[in-house]
């Protein structure tokens, strides 16, 4: 096994802890790279492809002091797009553990996520369910 980097294991997760990411400006470059890679586009004319901020916010979640969650599997998500984003908007993300449940292989962790723009308005929000590893013995 490759030496394990620091991770947040199931035992380390705490209910209601709010984690706030740094912010990032969504640029034309993000949009072109994303559209070229995935073939996806905004349904709303002139807006940023609706799933792009979600993809970027996951990465922003890696740029916080807390070590990344030791995810075994991303199981499901519910997601709402509250308003459109445009190139030049600056977003950050927040996440909060709302439920944790022990399983045989680890634990189920449910997190509420929000993406917030430079005006402080929530642009997207939802809930992720992860299967998370236990701390190795």
């Amino acid at each position: 096994m490759t030496p394990a980097a620091a991770h947040t294991f199931f035992e380390d997760t705490k209910l209601n802890d709010l984690v706030t990411s740094p912010a990032m400006t969504v640029t034309e470059a993000h949009l072109s790279l994303y559209s070229g890679l995935t073939g996806d586009a905004a349904v709303e004319p002139g807006a940023v492809a609706e799933l792009l901020p979600l993809c970027l916010s996951i990465g922003l979640g890696w740029r916080v002091p807390q070590p990344p969650l030791a995810v075994l599997a991303f199981m499901s998500m519910d997601w709402q797009i509250v308003r459109a984003l445009h190139v030049g908007d600056t977003v950050y993300g927040t996440s909060r553990v709302v439920s944790r449940r022990t399983m045989r292989e680890g634990g189920i962790v449910i997190e509420d996520h929000e993406i917030i723009d430079q005006r402080g308005e929530t642009v997207q929000r939802g809930r992720f369910t992860f299967l998370v590893a236990r701390r190795p013995a």
């Binding site: 995935t38 073939g39 349904v43 709303e44 799933l51 199981m75 499901s76 519910d78 997601w79 797009i81």
Partner: peptide, 30 residues
């Protein structure tokens, strides 16, 4: 999320594009 984004791109290639005004939300299982 790469799979999610690629399927969203594939939707445009079903040839059945809707006159969509907004993407309201999704419920998704991996």
């Amino acid at each position: 999320l790469l799979g999610l984004a690629i399927q969203s791109g594939l939707f445009y290639r079903t040839g059945r594009v809707f006159a969509t005004l907004a993407f309201v939300g999704l419920k998704w299982k991996f």
